[in-house]
Design a protein around this nucleic acid. Structure first.
Length: 788
DNA sequence: ACTAGGCGGGG
DNA sequence: GTGTACGCCTAGT
């Protein structure tokens, strides 16, 4: 019998002494299935020293019995592009691989042991061309569900699954959950504090399980029962890998309640990249995807849901985390806490609808299972994509090696022409670094050390740095990047014929975004010292060619009579003259064989003296703010608001006087404590743990005060503080806003002189406005006095 | 008056 | 644990 299935999750177990790969999925009729394959065996590669093949082979053979080796074959592969003979050592059990690796590495004549650190089910998927979040077909035999797995069908594979494609993903059953914990002592402790509310949501239904007083055993059990009954394909939470799951599991231990919610039996288990694995389902922590939204500074669930239009903050219950226990203890307020949990779980479910389509495409492209792809770092995503490509390309996968950090030169940023410019076009190279790597065949396997360059005509030599790369054959990075960019072109081509509101269009759009993300991240990856395919020369040559490209573009633009006002990395800003710009685009296309296009046109754009800081009014009326305080997360909201308003008045109305008066009014409000506390909080993140700091910065001092008050402050966390009156350093006056007792303690003068005034002057200074002017009294209108 | 540490956002 | 360039704050000398 032949079936089609869409792959959701992969796992393996040893059964009767052999490894059994389990592919959990959904078939063409919507049945949940598991496919068992016992035919695959783990292997590693041994790279012998020159001429040592036979010797090493014999030595490995002598280890056979001890390690369960069932095959040793000499195979031809490539290693950094060079043909090599490697010994492929096949064995029975994946569990023995680490030991075998160590034993073999010690043998005389062994240069390197490769691919001994690849998880067994990943190895299976790579070798069989099986892809998560994609359709496959396979010849099967149905078998009895002896273990009581939570699936409709259990099959034995009679041959290898054949990958069909990623189109038409099935309808997934999504289950969102969120817990609230009793926390009278600040941070809740799972050994002591009960889970008081568990809110869950699936399609069309929201439920709440609550503790009885401080007794949460039955709530826990009811949650487990509900989850099993819902039988979701995807379980989503917000920060669930780092809070909800570990907390629930601890509570389960306290009560002896097993959180046996997987499809194969068993609890969620800590796994790679810090995620929890629920066998047969995809456990996705949406926080991983929210992290990539840079527009939201403090990535709480309510902020992210608000930003994405999933649930407005104004239309939901908000409770400060440290007050949750008060709402539980006060029976009158308990319904509010329940509503809060429901708002949270509805937000989580809404985020799943926003993020999952992208996550699914990313998973399919890089080959990591859906539950891992979000948790994996960018570097790991790129690397898995490369590892898959390496297999197809006959290239051995290099080991991870520890290397010292080596800095190298990056891109060019032009000095802006300060002031206001009208009608400015921004010209952008599309995917500049990937295209340069393709164009010049930049790759670790095409790199030719200086002493080995025999024929200068056969290599591309990078400007400034002089690194040489063979023109032919195509390097590994070229092959991979060409494939990605080509796939993206095809997807975008298909999108053209579709209705943008159709589900098909949405899927394709998410796919093209994922393809772009992976292509663009590949350059950063190649310059990361932790990368398997790291090569400093590759990264260094790529940026050198980037600098050359932008400089030649500037030259060409000038020759065409275009006036350049700014440029950064892969873009130039020119006074828009359509015929000349068209000519430039065409010339670059022809002479550099690269694609540049008009990305946007500013009706007006304003530059200060500083690079990477400007603002502009777009043709459609929107205002872009780049790099300025208004868009930075480490300035008080009041300063950001003021700057944004000043920018609007300058760009839209050319009204300096009105802008000045606006700033004066805000200063006046500050002096009278008429500004809400939220607008005075300064958020900064902790780049390291508190002990590691060399200087006592304000946010570090504030974090220490938080710690003393019983809050947990971790590396990577954000600290919100306000500045209070007093003498001495800022650090001595930085108080966590949650600990502020009276707003009258606030140092409004600090906010005026160090926040509002500098932010306003960054713009207004260019128009001759000085600090003293801003500090004068505002002209108040009647409206201001009578509740305007 | 100066440098260094620290941070965040940009391309 | 993707890269470098950049500006600007405060601490510290």
């Amino acid at each position: 019998m032949r079936i089609r299935f869409w792959l959701l999750d992969a796992s393996y177990e040893m059964v009767g002494g052999v490894p059994e790969v389990r592919l959990w999925g959904i078939d063409g009729e919507g049945r949940r299935i598991v496919l068992l394959d016992r035919s695959f065996r783990p292997y590693i590669y041994v790279l012998p020293e020159e001429g040592a093949e036979e010797r090493v082979l014999r030595r490995i053979a002598s280890l056979s019995g001890r390690y369960g080796i069932i095959g040793t074959d000499i195979v031809s592969r490539k290693y950094f592009g060079k043909p090599v003979n490697a010994i492929k050592v096949t064995l029975i059990s994946p569990r023995v691989v680490p030991d075998l690796r160590e034993a073999v590495a010690k043998l005389e004549g062994v240069r390197e042991v490769l691919e001994a650190d690849i998880r067994f089910y990943m190895r299976y998927m790579i070798d069989k061309g099986v892809r998560p979040c994609g359709w496959h077909e396979v010849e099967v035999e149905e078998v009895a569900n002896d273990w009581g797995w939570r699936v409709d069908k259990v099959y034995f594979a009679r041959d290898a699954p054949r990958y069909l494609g990623h189109e038409d993903p099935p309808e997934l059953r999504v289950y969102a959950f969120d817990i609230e914990c009793y926390n009278p002592l600040g941070e809740p402790n799972p050994e002591r504090d009960p889970v008081i509310v568990i809110a869950v949501k699936r399609l069309g239904e929201t439920k709440v399980f609550t503790a009885e007083g401080k007794e949460d055993r039955s709530a826990l059990a009811a949650f487990v029962k509900d989850l099993i009954e819902a039988d979701p394909d995807v379980i989503v939470g917000y920060n669930s890998n780092h809070f909800d799951w570990p907390y629930l599991l601890e509570r389960g231990k306290v009560h002896g309640v097993k959180l046996d919610v997987s499809r194969g039996g068993g609890e969620p288990a800590p796994s790679v990249y810090g995620h929890y694995s629920v066998v047969g389902r995809a456990n996705v922590d949406l926080y991983d995807f929210a992290e990539e939204i840079h527009e939201v500074k403090v990535k709480t669930l309510e902020n992210v849901a608000d930003y994405l239009g999933v649930k407005k903050k104004s239309e939901r219950v908000l409770i400060e985390g440290h007050r949750i226990h008060e709402y539980w203890d006060d029976l009158g307020k308990r319904p509010l806490l329940v509503r809060y949990a429901v708002d949270d779980v509805e937000s989580t479910y809404g985020l799943a609808e926003k993020f999952l389509p992208f996550a699914i495409q990313l998973s399919n492209i890089v080959g990591l299972p859906l539950d891992q792809v979000g948790a994996a770092s960018v570097g790991n995503r790129v690397e898995w994509h490369l590892m898959r490509a390496a297999y197809e390309y006959g290239e051995l996968i290099p080991n991870k090696v520890e290397r010292p950090y080596e800095p190298y030169k990056g891109a060019i940023v032009l000095k802006p022409l300060p002031g206001i410019h009208r009608n400015v076009a921004v010209l952008d190279f599309s995917s500049m670094y990937p295209n340069l790597m393709i164009k010049y065949n930049v790759s670790p396997d095409t790199y030719v050390p200086p002493e080995e360059v025999a024929d200068p005509a056969s290599v591309n030599v990078a400007p400034e740095v002089g690194h040489a790369f063979r023109r032919e054959p195509p390097g590994f990075y070229r092959v991979v990047l060409e494939r990605l960019l080509e796939a993206r072109r095809e997807v975008r081509e298909k999108m053209r014929g579709l209705d943008p509101s159709s589900p098909e269009y949405r899927v394709l759009d998410e796919r093209q975004k994922a393809l772009k993300v992976v292509a663009n991240a590949t350059y950063g990856y190649c310059g990361w010292v932790g990368a398997r395919w790291y090569k400093r020369e590759v990264a260094e040559a790529t940026t050198a060619w980037g600098r050359e490209t932008i400089m030649r573009t500037i030259e060409l633009a000038r020759k065409l009579g275009l006036r350049i006002v700014y440029g950064d990395t892969d873009s130039i800003f020119v006074v828009y003259d359509p015929p000349r710009v068209d000519k430039l685009v065409e010339t670059i296309n022809r002479e550099l064989n690269l694609d540049i296009k008009v990305d946007k046109v500013y009706v007006k754009v304003f530059f200060t003296e500083a690079k990477k800081r400007y603002c502009g009014l777009l043709e459609d009326g929107r205002v872009d703010v780049v790099g300025l305080e208004a868009v930075r997360g480490d300035w008080a909201e009041i300063a950001k608001d003021v700057q944004e308003k000043v920018i609007e008045l300058i760009l839209r109305k050319d009204d300096v006087a009105e802008a000045v008066n606006f700033v004066r009014r805000v200063i006046d409000d500050l002096r009278a404590y008429r500004v809400p506390l939220e607008k005075l909080i300064i958020w900064k993140s902790l780049g390291k743990s508190l002990e590691e700091y060399e200087v006592e910065a304000a946010h570090v001092a504030a974090a220490k005060r938080l710690m003393e008050s019983g809050y947990k402050v971790l590396k990577g966390g954000k600290v919100g503080f306000v500045v209070v009156k007093g003498s001495g350093k800022l650090a001595e006056r930085a108080v966590p806003y949650v600990l502020l007792k009276d707003v009258k303690e606030l140092d409004v003068d600090y906010y005026i002189r160090k926040q509002v005034v500098p932010a306003a002057l960054r713009i207004l200074g260019y128009f001759g406005v000085r600090e003293a002017q801003l500090l004068e009294s505002p002209q108040r209108t009647l409206l201001d006095f009578f509740g305007g």
